[in-house]
Design a protein around this nucleic acid. Structure first.
Lengths: 364, 364
DNA sequence: CTGTTAGCGCCTTCAG
DNA sequence: CTGAAGGCGCTAACAG
């Protein structure tokens, strides 16, 4: 009942297991065509499927790539996952997926599980955190990764290097210029917007969020504008929604107080937050961009048909995922050298769309 | 350099590998506490990580669950994947992910790869096809699954049973009442809409699409309305967009011709198509719901903030993924029995929102 | 070119 | 309660 084995195939074909192995699984030279045919036929008739576990054990390499994300249903991660998947398939490897919710402890556990499965490489996506409650977790994660690398594993990170990791050989990171792009966005918005700026950021200590906040502030500064107020919220749709509600309240009361209030330009540090914020603002009867501008970050594909079209920063998410996959696990020689703590550059692009268009001041 | 082994741990602790195995990996009875401690310490100091491949080989069970989707970046699939992931984690198993683009040939290959890895179970999501060009592929896929099941594997399918599969023991499907729900939607729309109905369907032969189309027609019929015209398009955003463009043209020319044209209610067989269609309609200067109603299917979470809010049919996607995972692979006894070709019922809910609201006929 | 001999790392009877 | 022996299925040197 259990799947048939190589030995059975060999016996049926009247050859040794070694020979059967040579013909069925890629070996340097294929045995004589006559015998090869016999073996193939035997395998076929038995419905033979090689046992990858056994192969892996024997060759000590699993043909597996591990991917760690916060949440696979989040479009940011699923886009990256697509890229990782594509790269994996090019390397003829399968993808092992772990979702962690973003806590370093769970990420450590995932790395450990991947190590147990002897994945050839590991890709980690998702913002790093420097918050105190994550200190310990970060250390554990770093240690686990370090061990994994020492044992010959390769790891790719998209975003920021793991906090506290030593970036040994076999460790490389796809760096995203969040700060520069956010600054670029700010400068662009400063050009068309004359009111106040507000930033809806994630929790303090989330590196991705922090970078974008700081970058945006820097951009404003470079444009000769004062720093924007920063609202802290969850790094997700509902965080954006809550912050949006707060802002909507301000806008409404500002209008009620008279025409003195200045129009707000809201920058949410990612698209889903921006969408949440937009929903909140609108639920208050306000309109975008008439009553407020709003911009996001990531340029999530599923959100592109949102109206008014959301100004944002496009990121090559799929490409990032692809690049994060270590080239060829176990690669030796020159690559090995240059791979030590290497970093792959990636860039994005500011997309100005309807949500931040200047509005004709019909009412004044 | 390579990770240390159980044998090394045992040697360091001065015990036999068997003993070390018993204390480190769950065995019935733990050896004496004194010796257990020694082993644990040895393992700790060596940074021992059990080799899951070897364990799997020895126990002939991998602790892996395989998931097959068309495209992990598609929100429909990523939502299901989240559910599958959750169920996997509850079973203390890891998730192996394969994306196929939807062709039965690739799905067959994925099943084969999973079988090679000895996954405890396989979950397949994504619409089945009865198109001629998929005949052969379907047969191959069915055969592969059959073999997998015969070898003790369990498979769960979300949506439709695999075309041609024999539904043996260990095979179960999460059935979605696409037809009934679409009919329900149609009846609801018929109540508030007085114009013509048009359906934007996927390619003929895609079961999910076909069910929804047929169901919608049935609903119209039950409401005493004539059958709707069916436009065929790709089962994705751009398919919806193209069909939407066509419809936008008709609407515009209809309006130009005079007030005789009746308002259109467009039903796209899934949300992303609906969003694409809406974008196309709008790009033509038309407005929703003023110039046309539009409805989708799935109630994709990321699209909920779309304005006007899209009428659609909510589906418990995550739950569907969760339910698709076979309870406990290798389960014996009574469950085994009732699992043969079983089907889990699931249901959805019609969500009427702004995009199909009746419009006050100010212009007449 | 083919067959034989050892393991890969672990679990699991079976004795002691 | 512990150790010794055999095998899970396959590959990789060696011989022949």
């Amino acid at each position: 009942m259990a799947a048939s084995t190589l030995t059975e195939v060999a016996r049926l074909a009247g050859v040794s297991p070694a020979t059967a192995s040579r013909v069925l699984n890629g070996s340097a030279r294929t045995p004589g065509p006559d015998i090869a045919e016999r073996v193939r036929k035997a395998a076929e008739s038995l419905g033979y499927i090689p046992n990858a576990q056994a192969q892996g054990l024997a060759k000590s390499s699993s043909g597996l790539i591990g991917l760690i994300v916060h949440d696979i249903a989040d479009p940011y991660f699923s886009a990256i996952a697509r890229g990782v998947q594509a790269a994996a398939r090019e390397q003829h490897k399968m993808l092992l997926l772990a979702t962690t919710g973003g806590t370093p402890e769970e990420e450590r556990a995932a790395v450990s599980a991947f190590a147990a499965r002897r994945t050839d490489s590991i890709v980690i996506a998702g913002s790093r955190s420097t918050r105190v409650q994550d200190q310990e977790g970060n250390a554990g994660l770093a240690a686990e990764l370090d061990r994994y690398c020492r044992n010959g594993g390769r790891v790719g990170v998209v975003g920021h290097p793991i906090v506290g990791a030593s970036e040994p050989e076999g460790y490389h990171v796809v760096r995203v210029p969040n700060g520069d792009l956010a600054a670029d966005l700010a400068r662009n918005l400063a050009r068309s917007h004359s009111g106040d700026f507000v930033i809806i950021g994630g929790p303090e200590g989330l590196l991705t969020s922090d970078d974008r906040v700081r970058g945006f502030q820097r951009g404003l500064e470079e444009a000769g504008l004062p720093q924007a107020e920063v609202l802290r919220a969850g790094f997700n749709r509902s965080g954006g929604y809550e912050a949006g509600l707060e802002l909507a309240g301000r806008i409404s009361s500002g209008r009620a107080a008279g025409s003195g209030a200045r129009r707000l330009c809201i920058f949410a540090v990612n698209d889903v937050m921006a969408i949440g914020a937009a929903a909140a603002v609108r639920s208050n009867g306000l309109r975008i961009p008439r009553d407020a501008s709003i911009a996001g970050f990531d340029d999530i594909e599923t959100l592109r048909d949102f109206r008014p079209a959301l100004s944002t920063v496009w990121l090559p998410l799929e490409e990032m995922g692809r690049l994060a996959v270590p080239s060829q696990a176990g690669g030796t020689g020159e690559n090995r050298q240059s791979d030590g703590g290497s970093s792959v550059p990636v860039t994005g692009k500011v997309m100005l769309r309807r949500s931040t268009e200047a509005v004709t001041e019909a009412a004044a």
